[in-house]
Design a protein around this nucleic acid. Structure first.
Length: 522
RNA sequence: GGCGCUUUCGUCUAGCGGCUAGGACACAUGCCUCUCACGCAUGGAACACGGGUUCGAUUCCCGUAGGCGCUACCA
C-alpha cells in the first residue's frame, strides 16, 4: 500500500475567486506531494454548468503562481491523465455510470425536482433511501416497460446510488483516525443527471481520483460526512484495493462570531479572503486580495500553513516553503477549526518585509507617492523626489536598527513619511506633543535658532556643519530646542533625528517651516 | 431535528500518565531616547464540566455542555 507513488490533487470548482481556505488546502497538498517526491494535480470540477463563472479558472492559476505553489500536472500544466477539466470527461463518466447500472449498484429515477420538493414538504426529514425509494418513481419501483417508455419519450432522469442499509462504513482518516457511520443514514445520492449529461461531484470525484491514480485525498472537513459514501462508491466499482487514503482538514473560522470563514466575510471584517483582487464579472463588485493589499506571498503562505498545522517542539514559526516541505506532517494537523486571526498575518508580513532590501519596496512606495500627488511635479523636482525616496528608505530601513519602523505594509510608510514631502498644514495645539513642547518662550527660542541656522548656506546645510553649531548654541543658552523644532518641521512627535531631518529638507524648506510655525503658534 | 467531527491562555498552538502546563500573536509595564517607533527585558493570561480507569490524570474511556460541519439533480 505504501509502495504507491504519492499523487494528490487540488480540485476547485470554478465558481468564483479562490477562497483563502482553499489556498490552505492546496498548500497542504503541495507540501505533502513535495515531501514524498510525488505529484500535485490541478483538476477543475465544473460539473455544475449553472454555477460556472468565467475567469475563475485563470484567476486560480494566477493565484497559485503568485503564491509559489507549483503543480505537476493538470489544467494548463499538461500530463498523462487528462483531460483535467471534468466537463471534458463526459464520455468517461457515462461508461462508469453504465457499469453501476448494470451491476445493480445504481438505478434510474424520474422524480422531478418539483416532486421531490413536494415530498419533502409532505414528509418531515424525507430522505431518498432504502426506506422510501419504492414509493418513488424509479427503475426499482416501476415496471421495466414503463422505464423504457419514459426514457424513449425523452423524460429527464437521474441515476441514483443504491445504498444498502444497516452497515457500518469505516473511513480511516489520517488526521482523525477511524470514523464510522451507519449506511442507513446515507441517502441514495444522485450520481448523474441526464439533463446535462454530467455526473455530480461524488461520482466524478471517485472516477477521476481512481483514473488519475490519486493516492491521498487531502481536503476540508466539510467533506467528512460524505467520505463514507465515497468509500462505498470505491467498493461498488471494485476499486477498494487502490482507494486513496483520506485526510480531512479542520476548517478556517471567522475571527469573531460564529461559523466558518466564508467568501462574503472578507472585506466586511477588514481583511481579504481572497489571494488576489477579484472583480465580479456580473456585478462589477470588487473584492480585495492579499496581493493588492501589500502582502508578500511568503507571508501569506507561512501564516496560512500554521493555521491547522504546527511543526511542534517549539520550532521557529518563520518558515520558507522549502522548510515546510521538510517539516510537514499530516498527523501533526489539528482536528478542530482555527479562527482566522489576520492580525498575526500582518505580523508575518512585517517580518518578511523587514527581511527584504529596501530597494524591493521602491515600486510600491513610488505608487503611493503618485497617489498622493508627489510625482506630478516638474522634471526638475523629479530628481529631488527621487532623492527623497532614497532618504525615506534609508530612514525607514537604515542599517541602524533603531530606525526601523513598525510597518506591516509598504503603504504604512506614507503616514510615517508624509512630512518629508509635505509641510505641516497646521500646527495643532490639541496635539499633546505640540502643547507639551511649545511654551511661552518657544517662539523666541525658535527665532534664535533660525538665526543660528541662517549662518549656513544651502550647500553647508548638512548634519556635519549644523550639529556643532546648534549644539554650541544650545549649550551656551541652556536651550533644549529639539522637540519644538520637531513641531516646526513635522507638526507632531514623529520622525528621525532632527539634524538629519533638517539636512534632508534643506535650508530653504527648514527655515520656511520654522517661520510658519512661529507665526501660527506665536 | 438527525448524523458526524471537535474542546489547553483573548487568538494560533506545544504537550502524546508524573512538567512551576512551554512558545508565538495581541495586550500591559520598564529600559533606551531630542519625538514616534524599532529593539531588548519583564508581566498578566488556559487544560469546558461530571463520572470512571490508575498509586497518579491536561493526557486514556464514558457521559453532559459548548463549538463546527453535513443533511440539494452545489461543490
Amino acid at each position: 500500500m505504501s509502495e504507491r507513488r504519492v499523487r494528490v490533487r487540488f480540485a476547485p470548482s470554478p465558481t468564483g475567486p479562490l477562497h483563502i481556505g482553499g489556498v490552505r488546502t492546496a498548500l497542504y497538498n503541495y507540501l505533502f506531494a513535495r515531501q514524498h517526491g510525488g505529484d500535485l494535480i490541478f483538476r477543475i470540477e465544473d460539473t455544475d454548468s449553472s454555477r460556472f463563472v468565467p475567469g475563475a479558472e485563470d484567476y486560480i492559476i494566477e493565484a497559485f503562481q503568485w503564491l509559489g505553489i507549483k503543480f505537476d500536472e493538470g489544467v494548463s500544466f499538461g500530463g498523462q491523465h487528462g483531460p483535467y477539466r471534468q466537463s471534458e470527461r463526459r464520455d468517461i463518466y457515462r461508461k462508469y455510470v453504465r457499469q453501476l447500472l448494470d451491476n445493480g449498484k445504481a438505478y434510474i429515477a424520474f422524480d422531478t425536482p418539483e416532486e421531490l420538493d413536494a415530498k419533502r414538504k409532505e414528509v418531515e426529514n424525507f430522505q431518498y433511501d432504502a426506506q422510501t425509494r419504492m414509493q418513488m418513481r424509479n427503475s426499482l419501483s416501476l415496471p421495466k416497460e414503463e422505464v423504457e417508455r419514459l426514457i424513449a419519450e425523452g423524460e429527464q432522469y437521474v441515476v441514483r446510488f443504491k445504498i444498502e442499509p444497516g452497515r457500518d462504513v469505516h473511513v480511516d482518516d489520517l488526521i482523525r483516525g477511524d470514523v464510522s457511520i451507519n449506511s442507513s443514514v446515507l441517502d441514495d445520492k444522485v450520481l448523474f443527471k441526464s439533463a446535462d449529461g454530467l455526473p455530480t461531484y461524488h461520482l466524478a470525484n471517485i472516477v477521476d481520483d481512481h483514473l488519475m491514480e490519486v493516492s491521498h485525498v487531502i481536503r476540508g472537513e466539510e467533506w467528512l460526512p460524505s467520505a463514507p459514501l465515497h468509500v462505498l462508491l470505491y467498493e461498488a466499482f471494485g476499486w477498494q484495493d487502490t482507494m486513496p487514503r483520506f485526510a480531512h482538514l479542520p476548517l478556517l473560522l471567522k475571527p469573531v462570531g460564529n461559523g466558518k470563514l466564508s467568501k462574503r466575510d472578507g472585506d466586511k471584517l477588514g481583511f481579504p479572503v481572497f489571494p488576489l483582487e477579484w472583480k465580479d464579472p456580473q456585478t462589477g463588485a470588487i473584492s480585495s486580495g492579499y496581493r493588492e493589499q501589500g502582502y508578500l506571498p511568503e507571508a501569506v503562505v507561512n501564516f496560512l500553513a500554521l493555521l491547522g498545522w504546527n511543526p511542534g517542539e517549539g520550532h521557529e514559526e518563520m518558515m520558507s516553503l522549502d522548510e515546510m516541505v521538510g517539516l510537514f506532517d499530516l498527523s501533526k494537523c489539528s482536528k478542530s477549526g482555527a479562527r482566522f486571526d489576520y492580525v498575526k498575518g500582518m505580523w508575518f508580513n512585517h517580518q518578511y518585509l523587514m527581511q527584504q532590501p529596501a530597494e524591493a519596496w521602491t515600486p510600491a512606495f513610488d505608487k503611493i507617492l503618485r497617489e498622493n500627488g508627489i510625482e506630478s511635479t516638474p522634471e526638475r523636482e523629479a530628481q529631488v523626489v527621487e532623492m527623497m525616496k532614497m532618504k525615506v528608505i534609508e530612514y525607514v530601513d537604515g542599517e541602524n536598527n533603531k530606525k526601523k519602523r513598525n510597518i506591516s505594509f509598504v503603504s504604512d510608510l506614507w503616514p510615517l513619511c508624509r512630512f518629508f514631502f509635505v509641510a505641516p498644514e497646521r500646527y495643532d495645539k490639541e496635539d499633546g506633543f505640540v502643547s507639551k513642547n511649545w511654551k511661552e518662550t518657544t517662539a523666541q527660542e525658535m527665532d534664535q535658532l533660525v538665526g543660528v541656522l541662517s549662518a549656513l548656506d544651502e550647500k553647508e546645510f548638512t548634519v556635519e556643519e549644523m550639529k556643532p553649531l546648534v549644539d554650541a548654541w544650545a549649550e551656551a543658552t541652556g536651550a533644549r530646542p529639539w522637540n519644538a523644532w520637531r513641531v516646526c518641521l513635522v507638526g507632531t512627535g514623529q520622525g528621525p533625528d532632527m539634524y538629519e531631518l533638517a539636512a534632508f529638507l534643506g535650508r530653504q524648506e527648514t527655515i520656511k517651516r520654522m517661520e510658519n510655525a512661529i507665526a501660527a503658534l506665536g
